[in-house]
């Protein structure tokens, strides 16, 4: 019974009550994933499971046998930051830094959803093939991640910069 976390195999907890969030923070000592409400209302605990963003506080760890979990620690570390982590610093996309790992993981999951063409509440044409990286799309899609310090503008700017550039690169490669 195991899953992988940031590429390493880890055992599932004996106690099925242990949430994925508490497994990461208290059992695996990966406190980068944050607990802000423990009830699915703030997004601070967002992690990527097989590339999809989920809330680790509402996830029982035992449900994730065989799955691959990526946390903020798996994205980059000081000295080798992910481009989005770097962009958060440049655009001051945080203040206290507590919601930040969740915002970053969420944004990476969101980018996948946009590439896949998943519509959002503000997508005008449900049948569109391509989702624009408009501020409204980003704001709506990031609304599951609360920030109380009020770094919203910087977060949207950081995401815009990184994924707009990335799309340009992708187009150039084609």
């Amino acid at each position: 019974m195991s899953m992988t976390v940031n590429g390493a195999a880890v055992s599932l907890p004996d106690d099925p009550r242990v949430s994925l969030l508490d497994l990461l923070r208290e059992y695996l000592h990966l406190p980068g994933t944050k607990k802000g409400c423990n009830q699915g209302a703030c997004g601070a605990c967002t992690v990527l499971v097989d590339g999809e963003r989920i809330l680790s506080c509402l996830a029982l760890a035992v449900q994730f046998e065989g799955r691959s979990v990526t946390t903020i620690e798996g994205l980059g570390a000081p000295g080798s930051l992910h481009p989005l982590q770097q962009a958060f610093i440049e655009h001051d996309g945080f203040q206290c830094g507590y919601c930040t790992p969740g915002q970053i993981c969420s944004a990476i999951g969101m980018a996948q959803e946009i590439r896949r063409g998943v519509p959002s509440h503000v997508t005008a044409d449900l049948c569109t093939e391509t989702i624009s990286l408009s501020h409204d799309e980003l704001r709506e899609r990031m609304s599951g991640n609360l920030c109380r310090c009020g770094a919203h503008n910087g977060i949207v700017d950081a995401i815009t910069e990184v994924f707009a550039e990335e799309d340009i690169l992708a187009e150039a490669a084609e």
């Binding site: 997004g43 809330l55 509402l58 509440h121 599951g144």
Partner: peptide, 19 residues
Amino acid sequence: YPALSRAIVSGASAQIRNM
């Protein structure tokens, strides 16, 4: 059934809808 898509994406957050 666009009403269904619209209803779902107006609910909760993307993370929760993924779960």
